[in-house]
């Protein structure tokens, strides 16, 4: 159970102090899937970074299974059961895909196990498992590898920040299937997916809409989704028309 209690995050900018998140509260029960949506710049990635411990909140608390993890380091939170697939994945010279998957899993995954995780994100595993996670990979390939590492980590709470960005239509179907399978494979796993995609919103149990750093609406999918259809918070079909559209900055 992940509980976000009245979380705020202020930053100093050249133009003066700015409030990025204001009094955000939500809870994510075991086995549930929440999709967080909202316009660009509304603070969705910041919320994910606060949960993962990359940023420190100005006020408020984060609880995991009743334990206050607000003061824990990134590493401690990862060990406590938080997984986070970045919106913009990181490249490493010299580290191979198999290395990242093994670090994520926290054990010496077999090649076969690693391949299963890659196959789940639509990558032909043999071609990728020994590739370096460097600039030879395309944005879309990197994004899928990032998602596969979070599948491999199998955390209590997994956060995916715009997993659809840079992913073509064919593997988009697979991705949705993979999220469904992850919910079944990891008992009581909770998923938080940040997305504008109608078809990802459609598999949510709950939807949270963030605007300008605050929660505008939250509730069961059936209640929230109809009002979002056709807005920028629920894009239909192929994102912005082009399957190879680059991830949003």
């Amino acid at each position: 159970m992940l509980e976000i209690d009245n979380l705020s995050f202020d930053v100093e900018t050249e133009a003066g102090p700015k409030s990025v998140l204001r009094g955000v509260s939500l809870s994510l029960a075991p086995g549930r899937l929440v999709v967080v949506t909202g316009p660009n710049g509304s603070g969705k990635s910041t919320l994910a970074r606060l949960i993962a411990g990359i940023e420190t909140p100005t006020s408020g608390r984060i609880l995991l299974d009743g334990r206050d993890i607000t003061g824990l380091s990134i590493t401690e939170r990862a060990k406590a059961g938080i997984g986070f697939a970045f919106q913009q994945p990181v490249r490493f010279k010299g580290l191979k895909v198999i290395d990242l998957l093994r670090i994520a899993a926290g054990r010496n995954l077999t090649i076969h196990e690693a391949c299963d995780h890659l196959a789940a994100v639509g990558l032909c595993a043999q071609d990728y498992v020994r590739r370096e996670v460097n600039s030879s990979l395309s944005g879309g390939e990197l994004k899928r590898i990032e998602i596969a590492t979070i599948f491999a980590k199998a955390s209590k709470v997994s956060i995916f920040d715009e997993p659809e960005a840079g992913i073509d239509l064919w593997s988009f179907q697979n991705l949705i299937q993979a999220f469904k399978e992850m919910r079944q494979a990891v008992a009581d796993a909770s998923l938080m997916i940040i997305s504008h995609q109608e078809r990802i919103l459609a598999i949510a149990d709950e939807i949270v809409v963030i605007k300008g750093g605050s929660i505008e609406r939250q509730g069961p999918k059936d209640e929230i989704l109809p009002s979002l259809i056709g807005t920028e918070m629920a894009m239909g079909g192929c994102p912005r028309g082009l399957p190879w559209r680059k991830a949003d900055a």
């Binding site: 993962a52 990359i54 590493t75 060990k79 970045f86």
Partner: peptide, 27 residues
């Protein structure tokens, strides 16, 4: 790169372990 360290820390490595992995991979 700071983001490389952060990525590996979110996968459960300490900062020192993350540095070691990055260097060993690089070399």
């Amino acid at each position: 790169a700071g983001e490389q360290l952060i990525k590996l820390m979110t996968l459960g490595l300490t900062q020192a372990e993350a540095e070691e992995r990055i260097i060993n991979g690089f070399l």
